[in-house]
């Protein structure tokens, strides 16, 4: 089996995540879809690290995880704060700004 299969899996996961962002309405689930995209990228990075024979890819994946963790904190805080005023976590309800 070629490691390229991992890349294909990664591409598919990334796409699934991207489509999830488009179709889900719960802000938290949308955000989880973005996390899925980041995970897909990590899989690519790890696979490329192996193909290239350098550890850099793994280090990058590690950084992605750290960044994602920080992003999650900020994102959830923002979602919490809007939930407090709106009592809704649907992204479709945040629709005052348009046109």
């Amino acid at each position: 089996m070629s490691p390229t299969n991992y890349l294909l899996l990664s591409g598919l996961l990334f796409t699934v995540g991207a489509v999830g962002v488009l179709v889900r309405r719960n802000a938290i689930v949308v955000f989880m879809c973005i996390e899925l995209m980041l995970n897909a990228v990590n899989l690519s990075l790890v696979t490329f690290a192996r193909i290239n024979g350098t550890l850099d890819g793994q280090v990058m994946a590690f950084f992605v995880m750290v960044v994602a963790a920080a992003e999650v904190v900020v994102g959830l805080a923002i979602i919490m704060s809007i939930f407090r005023t709106r009592r809704s976590s649907s992204v479709d309800d945040a629709n005052l700004l348009k046109y």
């Binding site: 991207a18 992204v91 348009k98 046109y99």
Partner: peptide, 17 residues
């Protein structure tokens, strides 16, 4: 065209994709 700016995050994400 400005109607395309629907205010829905998901539409924006769609246009980005």
């Amino acid at each position: 065209l400005r109607r395309l700016q629907t205010g829905f995050v998901r539409s924006y994400a769609l246009s980005m994709l």
